[in-house]
Write a protein that binds this DNA or RNA. Structure first.
Lengths: 225, 225, 225, 225
DNA sequence: CATGAATGAGTTTTCATTCAT
DNA sequence: CATGAATGAAAACTCATTCAT
């Protein structure tokens, strides 16, 4: 499971020197995060952020290069963490050999990401919104999926296929289905938090079971032209 | 399967009188659609739309109430169509009795929606973007999922459960998984059209197979607290 | 008393050739007059006028040079008539010798102008509004008070002073007081027509009596430095 | 006589906190006042105001909510002051007993208002213009004539009638004549300041004498049906 | 002569950013 | 470091006017 999991923990690394993040920066980021989650980045004004943070408008620009700098400070840590952590989880599950089954790490993965989503709802809402709106941010996110990471992901999937634990489909497609299922959960959680009646544990079960059954090798293999 | 499936066909109903849509309106909508798909709604100026459409800025406001009116004219027809059509597909598949299997209409549904997505990529990109960015648009989209439609959806799922064709999970969760899988496909299609190496037919197969296996009743039922 | 007293009668002279005013022009002028009286000239759009008149916007410009041309067509006849008619009334009253008293023509004047105001309320509201708002229109109105007319007015007042019927004050001041009293009535009539509880006859009496007493020579003349 | 009589003094109360009005606000108000007096409110652009004030256009909106907010800041203090002050003058004159004659307070009133008009010519030109142009502003002005004030005015007039100092005409009519005479002076002063050849003292004498003679009880009462 | 779609300059207003205090 | 008044470019939108039909 990922170690660094709270946004606040990340700010330290990306903002102040020596991992320092000032009280003022915290106030600003908290205010901005809340506002960006409520509305969209474009609809939130710097005046509004300053007001909510209880500082002067000019103070924003003493602490961040830009209005965009504030957004970056919110997104970066999360975005830089998501994929590597997922892979780490997969790897861990596969290598921690005792249970080298699909089930083993699907459960591990789902549990981990669901927990992560619950801890960082607001930030994820912001990231989601930016991802779909802004070509640049989207590129940034995808850019993080470095070839190294993709290679790693492919290795893991190939290993599982070899072990007869995973359907013999293109890795891209398998990844897409994995992301879809987790992403779909994320979207509902983030956009309609009040509608969630299931417990976290139950949700993890459903998602995992769905994925395991959907991605286990078929007895009668599928013929694709 | 849905009859009216092109955006252009819908404009007729929502804009001009007598189902007429003028040449100018077409130029504006085409320009706006392209721009909104490239950037985001907020990042596109009315001047830009006018330039691309080859008309004067004032002409936009002569033909649409608002900048927002242009967006509406793009989104409305699609949004109003997506869910009802999906349900119709499901219903058709179930009622067209001969093969009342999960497989039957999952394939039908996936085939239909994949085709729809391929036909309306740009518009769907715009809708996706708005959905995540704007509380109001999100509400509008969800508001269109009228209780009547939800009731219908539940009926269909209950019928399938009774027939032993569908896992006995909460309908909400089943719907979420269905949307996730289709939505995940949509996202990839829409945001990274160039990366798609699989044929449409192959995609339909994978998605359908994944869903059918993921949602078929288990031999050993899952225990959820 | 003035012969030509309705706006419609004047349009003939200023618009069409041969005193002709077309049906379309009438519709436009009626619509514009109503709207200008409701709001102000600047607040009324050409679209609005066209709509109310039941014609196309372009039609306005086929019948009048300008938006301003419409206003002119409304104001001109009235404006060109007010002062000359007043003077004519005064002159008539003075020359029609039988009653060469101040009372005689103050009553005549007031009666005439009150009747005029009651007949042309809407147009007067427009003129009033323009007079206070627009330097150019104001100049136009004052420009009509040609030297000739002023000379006439002075003659009449001098004659009355000589007859011991009028206070020996500067003619400018006497004219101002005359206009004030009539103008004050006009303003109330035009802006708050609903508040008028007095009959026309009663109003004429009050105004006349006030003016006669205010402008009759004093027994003990006033000393002014 | 009214104590607070300069616009500047009022700005303090309505704009800044602690009765403060910043240098910038003063510059803007001065520029706007001059321009609104020259042309009309609608004809003056915000760019123009900013230029004349020597500030950036945005600065206007930093200091006033609206373009209309600037107008309000100019009009409000004057408008809120005119009528109450007049009544106060009347009341003072009547109660300060020694000379409870019509003459006593007509002179007081005229003197006071003429002085006021001379001090605030520009602002009054703006108010006049708005009053005739804009239904809303007119309503605002009239709305300020609270029932309390009207009741007071009626009391004063009734007292004077009882003392045999005032004609037995409807109070509404008497008020109208009073306003007409003062308003007429105002209009001339405001619109044609250069034409004024009489001294202030002389003007006060003429207006007062006219009003006193016009409103004193007649020896032979007027018969009105 | 009437139409009404098209025009584009002009309007008010917003907002991220700067800088003197 | 913090402040907040000032900035001015850019935004959405209006509207009198033109002109092809």
């Amino acid at each position: 499971m990922s170690e660094i999991e709270t946004i606040q923990a990340y700010y330290a690394a990306s903002l102040g020197k020596d991992g320092q993040i000032t009280k003022t920066q915290q106030k600003i980021l908290a205010a901005a995060l809340a506002l960006f989650a409520e509305k969209s980045y474009e609809e939130v004004g710097t005046r509004e952020i300053a007001d909510r943070a209880g500082v002067a408008e000019g103070t924003l620009f003493h602490n961040f290069v830009n209005k965009n700098g504030i957004l970056d400070a919110i997104m970066q840590p999360i975005v830089k963490n998501i994929l590597p952590t997922m892979l780490n989880t997969l790897d861990q599950a596969v290598l921690d050999g005792d249970s080298q089954t699909l089930d083993a790490f699907i459960v591990a993965l789902v549990t981990d990401r669901v927990a992560f989503a619950e801890r960082n709802q607001e930030s994820l809402a912001v990231i989601l919104s930016q991802f779909f709106n802004n070509e640049a941010d989207r590129a940034a996110v995808m850019g993080m999926v470095s070839p190294v990471i993709l290679t790693q992901a492919n290795e893991v999937m190939d290993r599982l296929k070899a072990a007869g634990e995973l359907v013999e489909w293109p890795n891209r497609m398998i990844l897409q289905l994995l992301f879809s299922t987790l992403g779909g959960y994320l979207v509902e959680k983030v956009l309609y938090p009040e509608l969630n009646q299931l417990t976290t544990a139950a949700t993890v079960r459903y998602l995992s079971d769905f994925l395991v059954n959907g991605l286990s090798p078929r007895r009668m293999p599928l013929h694709v032209d």
